[in-house]
Design a protein around this nucleic acid. Structure first.
Length: 210
DNA sequence: CATTGAATAT
DNA sequence: CATATTCAAT
């Protein structure tokens, strides 16, 4: 991937040729997705099968994977799981109808984003940031690294608990004993809840709009 | 006492 | 800058 300095007075950097693998069993959606990604100046590879996606990932280098959730040959979450486990790439989930369970599954299984069809270019223009963030991890020290891992686990349990309760019924005390993690106080949960409420609202809205 | 919002601190 | 801790008000 090449980072090009912004020209004509525009500040900031823009990624050219980010290698994206797009997976969708629906050819029409896949084609649309490819066009959109190309407009973002990414280097796009497409496939309609999750199994071939895995083969492509084994043979080529990619920076990011974006995949449909519901596919005939393999569940999108299965693909997510395999990719995250084997090659530690950022994965973005894509679906026409975002049920609460699907969004929860995606977040708890380590997807870095969840897009609802129809996808618009605005959303795709920002996905390269996931790649940058992942590469930044290499600069962190060991203990910081493990701390981040611990935080992510906490956050996953947190999100799972909140969605299980329902966003409206999710109170710190309820979340706390639903997570049942040692050395975790109500204040910790309350603080985390305070910060993540907008994010959780977005998840619920996504699930509602279908 | 639990919850929330906001000020600090890391 | 994100998020954790702490404090004040409800």
């Amino acid at each position: 991937m090449i980072i090009e300095q912004g020209r004509d007075g525009k500040r900031g950097q823009f990624p050219i040729g980010l290698r994206v693998l797009a997976v969708d069993d629906d050819p029409t959606c896949l084609m649309l997705l490819e066009i959109l990604l190309n407009h973002c100046q990414y280097h796009v590879t497409t496939t309609t099968q999750a199994t071939t996606a895995l083969k492509l990932l084994r043979e080529n280098m990619f920076d990011l994977v974006i995949t449909e959730v519901h596919m005939p040959d393999m569940d999108g979450f299965k693909l997510l799981q395999l990719v995250r486990l084997k090659m530690d790439l950022p994965v973005i989930m894509l679906s026409a109808n975002a049920s609460t369970e699907d969004v929860m599954k995606a977040t708890t299984h380590g997807a870095c984003d969840y897009l609802v069809k129809p996808v618009h270019i605005k959303e795709l223009k920002n996905i390269w940031q996931h790649v940058i963030r992942r590469k930044m991890k290499g600069y962190y020290s060991m203990d910081l690294h493990t701390n981040l891992g611990h935080r992510q686990e906490m956050h996953q349990k947190f999100v799972a608990a909140v969605i299980k309760l329902g966003i409206d019924k999710a109170l710190p005390s309820k979340i706390l004993d639903l997570m049942n993690v040692e050395k975790l106080t109500i204040e910790n949960v309350a603080s985390h809840l305070q910060i993540y409420r907008p994010y959780l609202k977005k998840l619920s809205c996504m699930a509602l709009q279908k």
